[in-house]
């Protein structure tokens, strides 16, 4: 079988770099181009030193982009949609890692991304890129928009309870702890080390736009509230979702095990993590650094019946580059786990 020819547009950032790392280690893939206007002509290892000795690929300009089998778009939000028509000519399949084509509802897009959608006509052609939710659609898709990192973990954590009708509407509180690489590679005062180190920063107590994807994928009614907050903590990679769910009827621990095993029992990238011994008894993001896993756990408050759902991922892998490759594998009939077998480190 010939190798799948892939190109990454906007490859100098953290997402582009992670994609490069995964694709260079993928048995069925060839990376033909990695574009960057800023670093065109320079070796990719300049921006991605972890790839030293792995590749002598150089960044190229977008203007010299040649046709290939699949195009990964890692451009800033808004840019992708504006340039999509020209980019779409270069490859039969496109996987967009920006937020431009995630939301089906253009009104939601305008509310959360501060302006009308630049290419609303295209929205219907994209499939929302969480394989555990839309596997068959992704298999047949030409265009996929991979989910946001916070959204990926929140949706995977909450979906089984919502799908089983076990959730009191409007009462869920999602409190995500995020890391600095989520902000991308562009420095700011807020990410300046003396300011960023050691913080527990309430950077989005309300108004975080990833909640729009939750609303869409959990099927919330338009007027059903969703309570979402994000706190930045002092690590570079990884995120943990703590979702407080108030069940529609009293649940026991075994109900949760059955619900989650029924939903994810055969998923290669989801592990149910809730143990009574050992040090890491609930999902722990740092154990997932570099892996495509989403670990999910839960606990029930014996006094109040509140269900606490915990979901951890590496925001750059399952929350971004890894999930994009997982979708690519499905779209090209390659084993879904190809190139995504790294199992994580410990201690780390």
């Amino acid at each position: 079988m010939d190798r799948i020819r892939t190109a990454i547009v906007g490859a100098s950032g953290y997402t582009g770099g992670e994609l490069l790392r995964i694709l260079l280690g993928h048995p069925s893939v060839e990376v033909t181009q990695a574009t960057s206007e800023r670093l065109a002509g320079k070796p990719v290892i300049l921006a991605h030193p972890n790839l030293r000795g792995r590749t002598d690929l150089r960044f190229t300009s977008l203007s010299s982009l040649a046709p290939c089998d699949v195009l990964f778009l890692c451009l800033p939000h808004g840019t992708t949609a504006r340039q999509f028509d020209t980019l779409a000519q270069q490859a039969p399949r496109i996987i967009d890692l920006s937020a431009d084509f995630r939301l089906k509802d253009t009104v939601a897009y305008e509310k959360w991304y501060g302006g009308p959608h630049p290419a609303p006509g295209r929205l219907g052609e994209f499939v929302y890129g969480i394989p555990e939710l839309h596997r068959e659609e992704i298999r047949r898709a030409r265009y996929v928009a991979t989910a946001g990192c916070n959204a990926t973990a929140s949706i995977l954590g909450l979906r089984p309870l919502y799908a089983a009708g076990l959730v009191q509407p409007g009462r869920t509180v999602v409190d995500v702890k995020v890391s600095s690489s989520e902000g991308g590679g562009v420095p700011s005062t807020a990410s300046h080390h003396p300011e960023r180190a050691g913080v527990i920063r309430s950077y989005k107590p309300t108004g975080h736009r990833h909640q729009a994807e939750l609303r869409q994928e959990l099927g919330l009614a338009a007027d059903e509230p969703l309570h979402f907050s994000a706190t930045a903590v002092d690590i570079v990679r990884g995120l943990l979702v703590t979702a407080h769910v108030f069940p529609s009827r009293p649940l026991q621990e075994i109900d949760l095990w059955k619900t989650y095993r029924a939903a994810y029992g055969t998923e290669p990238f989801i592990r149910l993590v809730k143990t009574k011994d050992g040090v890491h008894r609930y999902p722990e993001p740092k154990l997932l650094w570099g892996t495509n896993y989403c670990d999910i756990g839960f606990d029930i408050d014996r006094d109040t019946g509140r269900v606490v759902v915990l979901a951890a991922i590496d925001n750059l892998v399952k929350g971004s580059g890894g999930q994009a490759v997982q979708c690519m594998n499905l779209m090209h009939g390659v084993p879904e786990t190809a190139g995504l077998e790294f199992t994580g480190l410990h201690p780390v």
Binding site: E253, I254, W257, K258, R261, K274
Partner: peptide, 13 residues
């Protein structure tokens, strides 16, 4: 063949 026992806590075999 007796059925495979399941864990009383998490229902796994």
């Amino acid at each position: 063949m007796s059925t495979v026992p399941v864990c009383p806590v998490c229902d796994a075999e």
